[in-house]
Amino acid sequence: MTLRKFQPFVAVLVAVTLTAIIAGCGSTDSTEKASPASNGEGNTNSKLEKIRYAPLSGVSGLAVSFGAEKGFFEEEGLDVEFITTTDPIAGLTSRDIDVVDVATTTAIVAAGKGAPVKIVSSMFRTKGPFYLIASPDIKNVEDLKGKKVGIAVFGSGLEIYTRVILKEHGLNPEDVTFIANSTHQAAFASLETGQVDATIIHEPFASLAEKEGKGNIIATGWDYLPTFHTGVLAAREVFWKISRKR
């Protein structure tokens, strides 16, 4: 699937998932604060369900922006208020946000610590679009022995992808130096400037690396963990329960 075709697909998937979360109509639990789907604040169209959604920003949020521009959310009966946040879990627990895009590990850890968080969907269809790219002089995974490898954030799903790829090629964690180099533009810049010799990364940066001669794709994540999802849609647990009752 090309990037151009993938973008509208993801936008529709998100719209349908949000619709499923708040599907149906009916009264809310009197012990819960009025949810945005029922309080009517800012909703000029009574036929649309109001929802406060914090998608990923930057490149990862392009599909959602595309969907909003094309009216996909309205077609699914949603009046979406898009919110920008640097702490999606805090937004859910404070009830300022209803649904967020968030790293799988972040959502699981938060729920394990008692946060009222419910994972409702993967952000991807069947696999995460992640690649292990390396500087031009590195042609395969085995060449990474003794090198610096970017894993985004320690403890993240992207680190898991990287570790599994290395293991499948006979490399142990001590054979490389892991670097927390963030994601997207920051991760790509770390490869360009030589801070790392390889990095796990999203599109379009994998394709850009090859097109501009700045790197090689040496592994694709889904070949190693085809059913592992590094990103999910998560909702406030009470919001989810109320919506399920409608």
Rank of each mutant, 00 (worst) to 15 (best):
V176S: 00
S243W: 03
L171N: 02
N172L: 08
I218L: 00
E210N: 05
G157V: 09
G231R: 15
G194F: 07
V164S: 10
V164M: 02
Y161T: 06
H202F: 10
Q195Y: 02
A206I: 04
F228C: 13
I179D: 11
P226F: 03
H169K: 07
K211E: 13
S156Q: 07
Q185T: 15
T193R: 06
L158A: 08
H202P: 09
N172H: 08
R163P: 00
E212M: 04
E203D: 14
G170R: 11
P226V: 09
I200E: 13
F205P: 14
A152L: 13
E174C: 02
A219Y: 04
N172D: 12
I201F: 05
G155T: 01
V153R: 07
A219C: 10
A219V: 07
G213P: 13
P173S: 10
Q195A: 05
A235C: 14
F178I: 15
I200P: 15
D223M: 08
E212N: 06
L166Y: 10
L225P: 15
I179S: 09
G221V: 09
F239E: 07
G155L: 02
Q185K: 14
A189C: 01
E203C: 05
G157L: 03
E168A: 11
T230W: 07
I200S: 14
A152M: 13
D197A: 01
S182K: 11
E174H: 12
N216I: 04
E237M: 09
